[in-house]
Design a protein around this nucleic acid. Structure first.
Lengths: 349, 349
DNA sequence: CTAGGCTGAGAAATCGATTACGTGTGCCGG
DNA sequence: CCGGCACACGTAATCGATTTCTCAGCCTAG
C-alpha cells in the first residue's frame, strides 16, 4: 500500500515561508494588509506544500463545524432523495456540509443519530421525518443546537416546522376529481404513525362535505403508505363492491399499489376508475397509466430548511424564532384521472 | 429564542468530581483501574452535567474523525439510495458516520466534494459513481485518505473497486431471453460516459454471438440511462421497423421508457415484445407490466465498501491493498418477459 | 524498619488552527 | 535630530479532548 502523505500543517507553511503561523493564517484568510512579498511567500509556500487547513482544528477553535445534520425517515423512500439533494446543494452554496442519517423507519435509531450528530458538534439539525413521537419532540425542544423539522405536522411547540399544506393538498385532489364529475370517492389512508395522515384525511373529508357528498359515498380505507397497502385497499374496495368512481390515496406509492390491484382485476383506469396520488415521486410518471398526483415541493422544503438554519446560525435578525412554514401543494394532472363514467347504476340506496 | 445551553466540557466534569481531566477521560474510556469511588464520582458528575465529549476535540487529538465521505453520482437516481442506506447502516455499526455528497451528475462538483471532505479530514472515502473521468481517477490515486470506488468499471489502477459483474449481468439477461425462444433482440445502450455501458454492451454481444445470432438480428440503439432515452430508442425501433421480439436495456429507467413507448404504440408486453432491464430499482416492480430485470446487489456493495474501508483504517492485514471485487448480478423474472411469439413472418432476409 | 515495587491519579504536552496582544521597524513632523 | 505613531508581524493563549510522564502513597518482603 502506498504511503499516505501526512498533510502539511500551518506550521510547515510558516516555516517554509519564513513567517509565523499567525501570518499564514491571516494571509490565507485575507485579513489585514500583508506586505506584498510576505503574502507572496506565504501563498507559494502553501501552494508548494499543497496545504489544506484542517477543518477539525478550525472547528475546535471557531466552535463551528459548518456541518448540518440531516436525518430522514428513510432514504429509500423515494420522497426523500429530492429533498436531500436540494438540502445538499443549498448547504454547499452556503459553505456547509451535510451529515446524513437515514433512520430506516426506526424512531429509536433516529434519536440515536440525533445524539451522534450533537457529539459531532453539527451547527444545526434538520429532521425530515414522516413520523415523530412525543419523545422525539421533547428531544428536539431541548436540543443544544437549532433544529428545523421538515415534513411533519406542526404541533404548536416552539420549533420551526416546514411542511406542505397537506390538508389543502388533499382538497386539491378531491376538487380535481369533483371537477371531472366524480361523486363517489374512496380514500386510502396512510398509516396512523405518519403525521401527514390526519391532515390529508381531514382535507379529504372537508372537500367531500363541502361538495355535499354523503358520507356513505366517501368510504375510507386503511393503507400503509406502501404499494402493498394500496393493493390491499383496492382489493377490499372491489371485494366489498364499494361503488366508487375514483380513489384518492395518501401517497403515490399507495396509488401505485391501487393501480396494480385494479389492473389485476381488469378494471380500466381512468375509464372506469380514476386514481389520484400524493407527493409526486419520480415513479409517478413512470407507471402506466401515469399517475395524476398532488405534488409536494420537496426541493423547496430542503432548500428552505437549510437557508432557515443558516440564517439562524449567522445570527440574522429573528431567524432563530420558531416559525411554521406551510408550502402549497400543486396538482399534476396525468393519465390516471378522467371524466367520471356517467352510468349511475348499481348503487344501493 | 431559548438560550442554548453551552455544552459541558471535560474540565467541568473534572471540577465537579474533584479529579483531573485525565482521570475523567480514563474513567469514561474504561482505561486503567480507577478506585471505585473515584469512578463513581466521575460517572455521576458526567451524568449530572449531561456531558458529551466533543467529537471535534477528540478528532483533533486522535487524528481520526470516524467519518467516511460518500460521494454519489446523483442521489435522485433510484439506484443510489439503497446503496447509501446500506453504507450508512454498516458505518454506524462500526462507529463511523457518513458525510454525504451528491454530485448531481456533475463531475466537477464531485471533485470539489472530494476536496471538501479531505479538508474535513474524513478517515476514508467512498466514491459511488457511474462515471469517472481520467482526472478523477488521478485524484483518487493520489488521495491522502484511503478510497474505495463503487459501481465504476475497474481500470487496473491501484484503487480498490467494488462493482457488479456487468458483463455477466448482461449475459444473464440475454440468456433469459434466449431461453424464452427469442432470436432477434435489440439492445438499448446507456450513455457512453457511464462506465458500465461498455461491459454491458460487451456482455450482450458476447451472449448473442455465443448463441449464434447474426449481428443484423441484434441491433444496438443509443439511450441515455433515463426513461426519455428508452422512449426514443423504442420509438426508433418501431419506426425503422426493426424486427425484434425482445429489447434488452442498459438499465431499468431505460426499460421503463421503452415500456412507455411500446404502450403508446399499443404493442403488448410481453405477448408481442419482451423487455428486460438492469439494476432492479424499486420502481421496476411498480410499473405495469412489472419489469424483468437483472439485479445489482446494491446493499451488498454499500456494506462491502464500508467494511473494506474500515478494515483498512483499522490496519487489518492486507486490507489496504487495492482489490477488485466483482459482485454477481441476479436475474429477477417478472411480467415484462415471456415466450417469443412463434410467427416468423415479415423479416427481410 | 526500610527499600523497592506497584498503582492510582495529577501535571502538562499535544493535536492544528485562530486571534488578542505586544513588539520592533520605519516614517513623519516638530 | 528625536519622539511618537502606525503598521506589519510575531508570541502565546485558546478551543476540548487524550496520553505520556511523573509522583505520591501504600504494601510487602528482606
Amino acid at each position: 500500500m502506498t504511503e499516505r502523505a501526512i498533510p502539511a500543517t500551518i506550521r510547515d507553511v510558516a516555516l517554509r515561508a519564513g513567517v509565523s503561523t499567525a501570518t499564514v493564517s491571516r494571509v490565507l484568510a485575507g485579513i489585514g494588509n500583508p506586505k506584498p512579498d510576505t503574502a507572496a511567500a506565504v501563498m507559494t509556500a502553501a501552494a508548494e506544500l499543497g496545504f489544506r487547513p484542517s477543518g477539525v482544528a478550525r472547528s475546535l477553535r471557531m466552535k463551528r463545524t459548518r456541518t448540518l445534520g440531516l436525518i430522514v425517515t428513510d432514504i429509500q423512500n423515494p420522497f426523500f432523495p429530492e429533498l436531500v439533494q436540494a438540502a445538499d446543494m443549498a448547504a454547499r452554496s452556503l459553505g456547509y456540509s451535510i451529515l446524513l442519517g437515514s433512520a430506516a423507519y426506526d424512531e429509536h435509531r433516529a434519536m440515536h443519530y440525533l445524539d451522534l450528530m450533537v457529539d459531532r458538534r453539527v451547527d444545526g439539525m434538520i429532521v425530515a421525518s414522516s413520523q415523530l413521537s412525543e419523545e422525539s419532540w421533547q428531544w428536539l425542544l431541548s436540543s443544544p443546537v437549532p433544529v428545523v423539522v421538515v415534513n411533519a405536522e406542526p404541533t404548536g411547540l416552539p420549533v420551526t416546522v416546514i411542511t406542505s399544506d397537506n390538508m389543502g393538498g388533499a382538497r386539491l385532489a378531491v376538487e380535481h376529481l369533483l371537477g371531472l364529475g366524480h361523486r363517489r370517492i374512496a380514500y386510502v389512508r396512510g398509516s396512523e404513525s405518519f403525521t401527514a395522515d390526519a391532515p390529508r384525511l381531514a382535507g379529504f373529508r372537508q372537500a367531500c362535505r363541502d361538495a355535499g357528498l354523503r358520507e356513505v359515498d366517501c368510504p375510507e380505507l386503511r393503507g400503509d403508505a406502501q404499494p402493498e397497502g394500496g393493493e390491499r385497499a383496492a382489493a377490499e374496495i372491489l371485494e366489498r363492491g364499494l361503488d366508487v368512481t375514483a380513489i384518492a390515496c395518501y401517497n403515490d406509492m399507495t396509488a401505485i399499489g391501487v393501480l396494480h390491484a385494479l389492473r389485476a382485476a381488469r378494471r380500466r383506469v381512468p375509464e372506469e376508475l380514476s386514481v389520484v396520488g400524493c407527493d409526486d415521486i419520480a415513479a409517478a410518471s413512470w407507471v402506466a397509466p401515469s399517475l395524476t398526483t398532488v405534488a409536494q415541493q420537496k426541493s423547496e422544503m430542503g432548500r428552505l430548511a437549510v437557508e432557515h438554519l443558516a440564517a439562524a446560525l449567522d445570527g440574522i435578525e429573528d431567524a432563530g424564532t420558531p416559525r411554521t412554514i406551510l408550502l402549497p401543494m400543486v396538482l399534476r394532472v396525468r393519465e390516471s384521472t378522467g371524466l367520471a363514467p356517467n352510468q349511475d347504476g348499481g348503487r344501493a340506496t
